[in-house]
C-alpha cells in the first residue's frame, strides 16, 4: 500500500531539486518521523544521479557523507556522487571510503521507491558506496568548505532581548545578556541526537575548545529541543562529554523566543511529531557587535587543535 511519504517523494521529485529542498527544516519535512524524513532526503539526494548535483548542493552531499548516520541517506548521497561522473574528484574518494567504513556494522539493503530513482541491482548501502567509489577515478580539486564566506547575519537587538534562556544550572538571562561583552562561539545541539558524529561530537569538541581557547571567547551551545532538554539533562550531557561549565562555557535552552531565535539565525533544523527529525551541524561566531557568521565546525575545531 503506498504511504503518504511515497506520495510526498513523488511530488517533490516532480520539480527540480536543489539546496532549498535539502535544507534541514524545509517545510515539506515538518511533522515527518525521523525515518520518513531520512527516506525523503535519501530520494532527493539520489535524484542527482540523473540530474547532476547543482552547485549549491555539493556541500550538502559532502556533509552527508561526512557525518550522516542514516544508512538510507548515505546511499542517496552515494548515488548523488555517481551523478558527478567525470567531475568527481579525489576528495570524494575519502568521503565515500569513510562513509562505507562507518556504515559497515549497520549495513542494510536499500528499498528505493520504485520508478523514482534510476533502477539498479538491489544493493546494500555499503554496496552503493563501494560501487560509486570504484567509479570515482579522477582527482580534481573541488572545495567543500561549508560556510566559507557565509553571509553575516546582523542580529536584531530587540529580538535578542526577548529571547530568554536558561543554562545547565538553571540560571536565567536574555540572549542579549548572554552575548554581551565578548565574542561568542555559538553552536546548536540536542541531547536526543542519535548521531555521534553530530551533536555529541560537537559538544565534546566544544568542551575541548573551552579548556584550551586562548581567546576570551564565550563558548555556548543552545539546544534545538528546548522542551525536552531541561537544565538537568543538559548538565548531565555536558558533564559526560567533559564540558567544564563556567561563566564562559554554558549549555543553554530558550525558555521563550525559540521560534524567533531559529528564524533569526536561519537554523537548519526540522521537527517531527515530538522532536528533531533532521538537522545540520551549525556553529556561529558572534561578535560583541552582534554580527553572527556561520562557520565550518571542522575548520574551527581543527584550528583550535593547531593552536
Amino acid at each position: 500500500m503506498p504511504r503518504d511519504v511515497d506520495a510526498l517523494i513523488t511530488e517533490l521529485l516532480g520539480r527540480p531539486v536543489g539546496a532549498a529542498q535539502l535544507r534541514e527544516g524545509a517545510p515539506h519535512s515538518a511533522g515527518l518521523s525521523t525515518a520518513d524524513a531520512d527516506r525523503v532526503r535519501a530520494h532527493l539526494l539520489a535524484s542527482f544521479e540523473t540530474s547532476g548535483i547543482p552547485d549549491d548542493a555539493i556541500d550538502i552531499v559532502a556533509e552527508e557523507l561526512r557525518t550522516s548516520a542514516s544508512p538510507l541517506v548515505l546511499a542517496g548521497a552515494a548515488r548523488a556522487v555517481r551523478g558527478l561522473g567525470a567531475d568527481a574528484g579525489g576528495e570524494w574518494v575519502e568521503l565515500l571510503r569513510d562513509a562505507a567504513d562507518r556504515v559497515a556494522t549497520a549495513d542494510v539493503y536499500v528499498r528505493w521507491q520504485p520508478g523514482v530513482v534510476a533502477p539498479t541491482w538491489m544493493r546494500t548501502v555499503r554496496g552503493e558506496l563501494l560501487d560509486v567509489l570504484s567509479g570515482v577515478r579522477e582527482a580534481t580539486a573541488r572545495g567543500t568548505g561549508a560556510g566559507v564566506g557565509a553571509p553575516a547575519i546582523e542580529l536584531d537587538r530587540e529580538t535578542l532581548r526577548h529571547v530568554r534562556i536558561e543554562d545547565q544550572s538553571g540560571a536565567r538571562a536574555t540572549m542579549t545578556e548572554l552575548l554581551a561583552g565578548r565574542d561568542t562561539i555559538l553552536a546548536f545541539f540536542y541531547t536526543r541526537c542519535m548521531n555521534p558524529a553530530r551533536c555529541s561530537l560537537t559538544i565534546t569538541r566544544l568542551a575541548g575548545l573551552a579548556r584550551s581557547d586562548p581567546d576570551d571567547r564565550a563558548i555556548v551551545a543552545m539546544t534545538y529541543d528546548p522542551g525536552y532538554d531541561s537544565p538537568q539533562r543538559m548538565r548531565r550531557y555536558g558533564a559526560e562529554r567533559g564540558f567544564a561549565f563556567g561563566e564562559r562555557a554554558r549549555l543553554v535552552r530558550a525558555t521563550e523566543g525559540w521560534p524567533e531565535m531559529r528564524a533569526m539565525f536561519g537554523l537548519r533544523v526540522g521537527y517531527g511529531p515530538v522532536t528533531v527529525n533532521e538537522h545540520a551541524r551549525e556553529l556561529f561566531l558572534v561578535g560583541d557587535d552582534l554580527i553572527a557568521r556561520a562557520v565550518d565546525p571542522d575548520a574551527v575545531f581543527s584550528a583550535s587543535l593547531r593552536e
Binding site: T105, Y109, V125
Partner: peptide, 14 residues
C-alpha cells in the same frame, strides 16, 4: 561482534 558480523548484517536485517 559487530565487526565480524558486518558482512552478514544487511542480509540478517533483510
Amino acid at each position: 561482534q559487530p565487526v565480524r558480523f558486518a558482512p552478514f548484517h544487511a542480509e540478517f536485517v533483510e
